[in-house]
Design a binder for these strands. Structure first.
Lengths: 135, 135
DNA sequence: TTGGGTACTTACCTTTTCGTGCGTACTTAC
DNA sequence: GTAAGTACGCACGAAAAGGTAAGTACCCAA
């Protein structure tokens, strides 16, 4: 019925990108995905499900994170509208971080993923051992 | 009742790591999480939900991936027991990749996350604009 | 008065990631 | 004969990520 080869991709790329399509290289959803699935992004989102916390609290909770990466990752998540930052203008700085409603939705999905991995870890490691021992 | 400072961490770190605890820096779940949430890992897991596919099929489906990264990421996912690789020893190489049952479970969680981001993208971008325009 | 805690920023340097291009061994199509 | 496709491996270099250390401005405890 139709031409097999059309001069333009179907439904316009721009439209796909506006809707969100992770398979399209230029889609901004790739950027968001990058922040969310970044090394520390996942951990922070899960950590923040425990409620409002301060910078140093998060630093202590998330093992191995540096101050630099904590600050940077929080800024990404804030820019994407997932975390809210409230700075109290007091003398030793006091800043509180929490999830926005949007962030809470997201964090649930992320935690589901992280929990699944933790739960299945023995099974995963077992599969790895089978492979290494040449089974 | 107890000492505030105990010479050993509670319940032993090793035990926490065997069970899986992403917040512990040395836990192997961090490694698995890294593979799964890597730039291309997410995309490949979602792409493989469409069923068994060949190397080149995946390359074409996932926009922007290089052959090197495709091969490497597939190897990670295979080592973790999420994808199965079947090589037919024929003359132009023919290799098929598919999700294992474990991988299918995982891919569902990952797809839920990716879908949510795609679906909420307009909302996310809107939040970003508000911020940039000094709201 | 020295040291530690708060919430960062900046500069510097190392590590990791990733893309590009080339090679392979062979077949099919042109 | 030449080009293209298949499924990679390898080597090189650029780019990005990320750790470390120091600085800030001020307070509190020892």
């Amino acid at each position: 019925m139709n031409d097999r080869i059309s001069p333009e991709p179907p439904a316009t790329l721009a439209e796909l990108m506006r809707r969100g399509n992770v398979f399209a290289e230029q889609c901004p959803s790739r950027e968001v995905l990058k922040h969310v699935t970044s090394r520390w992004g996942v951990l922070l989102l899960v950590a923040l499900r425990d409620g409002t916390q301060r910078f140093s609290d998060l630093r202590r909770k998330v093992g191995g994170i540096s101050e630099k990466m904590l600050a940077q990752t929080l800024q990404w998540l804030e820019a994407d509208g997932f975390v809210a930052r409230i700075a109290h203008p007091v003398v030793p700085p006091h800043v509180e971080y929490s999830l926005t409603p949007l962030g809470e939705e997201l964090a649930q999905k992320v935690e589901a993923l992280a929990d699944w991995i933790e739960f299945k870890l023995p099974e995963i490691m077992a599969a790895r051992v089978r492979r290494e021992s040449g089974g």
